[in-house]
Amino acid sequence: MERASRISAALIFIAPLAVLVALWAVVVPAFGVRPQIFPSVAAVGKAGLESLIDGSLLRHVASSVSRVAIGTVLAVLVAVPLGILMGVSRGVSAFLTPLMRFFSVLAGIAWIPIATLWFGYGFGAIVFVIFNAVFFVVAYNTLLGVSTIPMTLRHAAASLGAGRRAMLTDVLLPGALPNIVTGIRTGLGFAWRGLIAAEMIATDVGLGYMLFVARDFYQTEVIVLGMIVIGTLWLLIDRLILVPLERATIERWGLVSA
């Protein structure tokens, strides 16, 4: 039952993508589209196979994913405690909320030029861009999450003997978690896009770089392959990490964030 419904959900998810590929397989030869404009399915398949065999695809994927992972983990580790601190005090939270919103809107990409000035081209600049894409959104959402925890819950905890530490771990953190998860989800979306953009400019390895270099040689099959990999990786991150995280916590508690 459980498994059957999972399989059918997966099918419903995959079907439109399959239709898109089928359409592509028909349209490109039917209209005689030149490979410099758009590649055939077979060409992309071949490019995929070759880059798998020579290890270059894996190298690009590994460096992109590790950059996102490092930048995101660092950002979450700093943003959550900071967001909670900001949320605890009404004065501090009122002062910082507009700033957090402002920087949230910059969403990673806008940091690229200054990042390359500060860190040069390479790992540092890219991780910085990702860090910023995630940090502000998560800090802002954490702050929001803490300030929406009903005062009575804090009172209840205090009158059951909770000190500062327990208030943090047993009330503020779990209470803000729905918003934190929302923040991570939004931030990772920004980060993933920011990553691709930053890699086009500031490095010599990674999926963004792979796309950008392929353009110089009119290798549309590599470009499209890269786009497919980028989209697929995002869907995997979302389905395999973010959605289960939400299920395990928020939905079970009845805290689905509005």
């Binding site: 009903p150 009172h155 209840a156 047993d170 978690l177 508690w253």
Partner: peptide, 8 residues
């Protein structure tokens, strides 16, 4: 308002 911890 009961004030139970929803996450516990």
């Amino acid at each position: 308002s009961f004030a139970l911890f929803p996450w516990k």
